[in-house]
Write a protein that binds this DNA or RNA. Structure first.
Lengths: 339, 339
DNA sequence: CTGAAAGCGCTAACAG
DNA sequence: CTGTTAGCGCTTTCAG
């Protein structure tokens, strides 16, 4: 069951196959009559252009590679969804690769995508470690990073302003009269998370509060991790009136631990998340959080990438999007006496 | 910045480029010595095989196309994640297209994928309508459907046993002494959902209960829809002790409406979902539900597809996986007096 | 064991 | 306006 090619329909119509090619593209230099005939034949025989062959000669595939840790993860899947839609709107298809937060696999799929001749790569790195081994490849294909993790690399990246996000959140909590705020789940080996911790510290300093941390050693956030960590926290008497969690997942884990420990949120403890994953807005979760503008991040990433693809000479650009506060039900104003 | 090709390294080593090609593939007919030299040169010059060219001559791309309604949707994103991982393990990459539950777009991306010369397509159809327009294309590329929606098409499909799922759930509720069970969110224009409704009816008949439905006109499930529908339900006095929801999303929407209406779950009303999306297990949601075995569905779908790809002559196969009950906290045993 | 040559389906000069 | 030709990077006979 061979696929019908340009040659088949050339023979059918009785023209050369370059004429067919021209009829199919919007070449002006073709008579209306022949074009009609060609188009008719294409329909009759069910011709579909072969993009592989086309890519071969055009030197571009119109495919964008996307590297993410995993897609079953509300933040990533939302982002991926926006990216796919927007890219397709722009005439590009998406080839998705997951890495399971595995550094070696990040390498592997990057190479894979390069071999596939993708026109560009949107890369969501899980680590802040050096990408030395990837460097020669990155030079070979337009890449935009979606994260501040690699901000020191001479590459384009887009991210939310993590530092500003936690600062915003901390100020909000302060405005609600909280003075003892715990930063929950600091991760030291991620630039993104260092920045979040930094924003919290900055706000604390400005507002005259003592920063206080509960660290997480885990390489990525999960509800489970938040749960485990929060259990530790609740095992001792509560020394805080509010917590700023490093991510929504962590916050949701704390929600469960709180329920079990009899800590009421927000009555006994205000809880602030980060990311605004779709779970956060769920009725029974109802988490107040710092929102990352996912759709804007996605479309901007694609636009940046296409820009690099079309103008290879342009300088690297770094775009930092503003986070925003989404007020829901997990934070409560403290009456002054409680202070 | 041209990419280095097989020819470049042929010149560098001083052999013909077919020798390079042979060294790179596991051809036995090559001296260890030359192969070493070639491999060394490849490393030195940073050669990466061009899969587009390779695809061209091999007549296959080792790419699988995946068509889903959207990826920001817990069920789909989990499934997609499993599919990507397993496919890559098998040497295939994934090209993902979303359709936004739009029939015209299903067509469009299918054609697109065919043009991209994908070796096969995993298709999650949103509709039960005829796929007449797609028929000629489907014949041209191995396709497996993930859904019972197209069970009448002479094509391979894999799905969970929807009918058995609701039957299982209804029997469970009956075992908990519930006799007045509402089926919530029946969708009439989807075969999948007709089967779920059927399973519920079958169980009702067997167990001597009167089936009762609340229909949804919406083409797909969402928390919002469940919420809206449940508000209607709770506006009148409650005539049921349990509800079997058509999907987890619908059930979660009901959870919110219940909270607002002062209906306690499970004390006042037992609630059963369907799908076991990742939200369902969330601490505060804790939904008892019928689980679709997502990982098995994903790997089986890939295996079925690869099978069709490698043996084009094999007959269509239909695989129906067994659902299972996941007991969590949203269903309660009724004491007999309450009956 | 290795080289030469054909060809995958298509586009893009270059001629007419 | 249309046909001829070369060639994209690679695999694979077919000869040595």
């Amino acid at each position: 069951m061979r696929k019908v090619t340009i040659k088949d329909i050339a023979k059918a119509v009785g023209v050369s196959y370059s004429t067919v090619s021209r009829s199919l593209s919007k070449s002006p230099e073709i008579s209306l009559e022949t074009r009609e005939k060609v188009l008719a034949a294409c329909r009759e025989y069910g011709y579909t252009a072969n993009y592989v062959a086309k890519s071969m000669v055009m030197g571009k595939t119109e495919i964008i590679g996307l590297i993410v840790s995993s897609m079953d993860n509300p933040f990533m899947s939302e982002l991926s969804d926006y990216i796919e839609r927007y890219a397709r709107e722009k005439g590009y298809n998406l080839m998705v690769c997951t890495t399971s937060h595995n550094e070696k696999q990040e390498d592997e799929v990057f190479r894979l995508l390069v071999g596939r001749q993708v026109d560009g790569i949107i890369f969501f790195p899980s680590f802040s470690t050096s990408y030395d081994n990837l460097k020669p490849f990155i030079d070979g294909v337009p890449t935009v990073f979606m994260s501040e993790n690699l901000r020191d690399l001479p590459e384009s990246y887009i991210a939310v302003d993590n530092r500003e996000g936690t600062r915003l959140g901390t100020e909000y909590l302060h405005r609600l009269n909280h003075r003892k705020i715990l930063y929950f789940g600091r991760r030291k080996h991620s630039t993104t998370h260092q920045l979040r911790a930094q924003g919290y510290m900055d706000a604390c300093r400005e507002l005259g509060m003592e920063p206080s941390f509960m660290d997480s050693d885990h390489p990525f956030s999960s509800i489970q991790k938040g749960y485990a960590l929060a259990r530790e926290l609740f095992a001792r008497p509560l020394a805080y009136t509010a917590v700023a969690a490093a991510t929504d997942s962590l916050a949701i884990g704390m929600l469960q631990a709180a329920g079990e420990a009899g800590v009421r949120i927000p009555e006994d403890l205000s809880l602030l998340g980060f990311d605004d994953i779709i779970y956060a807005g769920l009725p029974v979760i109802n988490l107040t959080t710092i929102r990352q503008p996912k759709e804007a991040m996605a479309t901007t990433a694609v636009d940046m990438l296409l820009d690099r693809i079309n103008n290879p000479m342009t300088a690297y650009s770094h775009i930092i999007l503003a986070p925003s506060l989404v007020e829901r039900g997990s934070c409560q104003r403290l009456s002054c006496q409680n202070n």
